[in-house]
Amino acid sequence: MATETDTHSEGGLVFHPLDQFIPKSLFGDGPIAWYSITNVTLWLAIAVACVFLLMVMGTSGRKIIPSRLQSVAELIYGFIYKMVEDVCGKEGIKYFPYIMTLFLFILFANYLALIPMSYSPTSMIAVTAILGFGVFIAVTVLGFVLNGASFLGMFWMKDAPAVLRPIIAVIEVISYFVRPVSHSIRLAGNVMAGHAVIKVFAGFAALTLVSPVAILGITAIYGLEVLVAGIQAYVFTILTCVYLKDALHPHH
């Protein structure tokens, strides 16, 4: 899409806002196979390293009065633990490690993506679709395993007037199947849009006349993206908890 501007030689305006999302092999030039070590791999590995640093190295002191890093780790732990407990109830606590995994992965992937020249895995729809559909399939299977066929009662509103029940059931089923789509596109769309907008502003910065405005724009959007990175991780996690609650207590 942005390739027309390649011929745009006189103004120096070069827009490739989406090129930042291209996975590149770190070793060798060949086509990217499923096992190739790419910049995706690199930044995912950095995310794992950061999780390890914060949650394992940070807490290695096991101090009663926590160090700074330990108190951050405890804060995140307490935050997600309370979220799971509040939304899903006591039965949800045993799924806490999975939700914590999701939250920390998305949080670190989002924030690491804000480092210039980094790669943003959570902007890739394939990545967020795995997360979103993973949650969807896990929650649905869990719902049927725990509740049997009565899990379907979730779609049948007993409080609604009898005439409306079938209509509501259809709407509920549709909205249920839309969940994973919105769940994954919300995250990828937010991250991708922010990064692409920053790149577009950066492209404009090549024009001397508008460069101050463009740089201000980059700064403003960057600030916004810092917010979005945290909020999207939070939103993804709390929606996961809400879906999990439906599987644990389908009868509202």
């Binding site: 791999t41 590995a45 949650m55 394992v56 914590m100 920390l104 895995p121 394939a126």
Partner: peptide
Amino acid sequence: PNQVFWLLVTLVAIYFIL
């Protein structure tokens, strides 16, 4: 496939660390 594969590796790694 590349992203999916490495994502799964990442998630499993983070899950075990946690």
